[in-house]
Structure formats: structure tokens, C-alpha cells
Simulated assay, not measured.
Amino acid sequence: MRKQKQFWTVVSERTFQRLRELSEETGMTITKVMLWILFEQFDYSTEIRNDYTFTTAKGHKIVAKVTDEELEKLQDLAQKHLMSVSRLVRNILYTYFFKKSE
């Protein structure tokens, strides 16, 4: 049996709105949509952009349960980009939606 771990992130209001829209389209929860983007949809060869629109005052917290392997992948990527897992996930989601709107 795989052991479950969790991580959290806080995303900007706009990113959360886009997650909610995608959640309604797909019928998945917001957390599942976020994990789907992180582990199936995001092209990690693209440059990860900083979400400068983010403020903690208007942020939305998302907590996700993942496997040890998934958390290790995120931790390795965060270390590679010299940021926390929370910030990495926030920036990946921002980059994903930014690329979709281009």
C-alpha cells in the first residue's frame, strides 16, 4: 500500500477561479484538477513563471494528499528551482493557465 503524504499551497484569486472553472468543466474537485495539472498536463520543459499577482490576503489555500513518490518529485523540483513546494505549485499553476490564455 502506498503511503499518503500531503502538501499545501496558496494560490491567487485568479488562479483559484481558473481551477474552479476547470473543475466544473471536468467534474473533478479543485484538488484533483490541481494534481491532474501537476502530474499529467504540465510540460516541465517550459519555463516556470512567477505569479506576481499573488497576495496572501486574497489567496486561497489548497491542501492535497499525494503519494510519497509524487511528493518526492515535487520536493526535487522545488529544490532544483530554489523554492518551497508551495511556491513551486503556485507558480506551476499560474504558468499553466498563463500558457493556456496565450
Rank of each mutant, 00 (worst) to 15 (best):
E47P: 08
E47N: 12
E47S: 11
I48R: 04
I48V: 13
I48A: 02
R49F: 15
R49K: 15
R49V: 09
N50I: 11
N50A: 14
N50D: 15
N50S: 15
N50Y: 14
D51V: 14
D51A: 11
D51I: 14
Y52V: 15
Y52W: 09
Y52S: 07
Y52T: 14
Y52N: 12
T53I: 11
T53L: 13
F54K: 12
T55Q: 02
T56K: 10
A57T: 06
K58F: 12
K58M: 14
G59F: 02
G59M: 04
G59N: 06
G59P: 01
H60L: 04
H60M: 08
H60Y: 13
K61F: 03
K61G: 05
K61C: 09
K61R: 15
K61S: 10
K61D: 10
V63I: 11
A64E: 03
A64T: 01
A64I: 07
K65N: 09
K65D: 02
K65R: 13
K65E: 09
K65Y: 15
K65S: 09
V66C: 02
T67A: 03
T67S: 15
T67D: 06
D68R: 07
D68I: 13
E69Q: 08
E69P: 04
E69R: 08
E70Q: 15
E70F: 05
E72G: 08
K73W: 12
K73H: 06
K73L: 12
K73G: 00
K73M: 09
K73S: 04
L74I: 04
L74G: 00
Q75H: 07
Q75M: 12
D76I: 13
D76L: 13
D76F: 08
L77Y: 12
L77V: 06
A78V: 07
A78I: 10
Q79M: 09
Q79K: 15
Q79N: 13
Q79T: 14
K80S: 14
K80M: 15
K80G: 10
K80I: 12
K80A: 15
K80H: 11
H81V: 06
H81W: 08
H81S: 07
H81A: 03
H81G: 01
M83E: 14
M83G: 00
S84N: 06
S84H: 07
S84K: 10
S84I: 03
V85R: 00
V85E: 04
V85Q: 04
V85F: 01
V85K: 00
S86Q: 05
S86L: 00
S86I: 01
S86T: 05
R87H: 10
R87Q: 13
R87Y: 03
L88N: 04
L88M: 04
L88I: 06
L88G: 02
V89I: 13
V89A: 00
V89N: 01
V89Y: 06
R90P: 02
R90I: 04
R90N: 03
N91K: 01
N91L: 02
N91R: 00
N91F: 01
N91P: 02
N91M: 01
N91A: 04
N91H: 02
I92L: 07
I92P: 08
I92G: 05
I92Q: 05
I92N: 06
L93C: 07
L93M: 12
L93Y: 05
L93S: 10
Y94K: 06
Y94N: 13
T95L: 01
T95R: 00
Y96H: 13
Y96E: 01
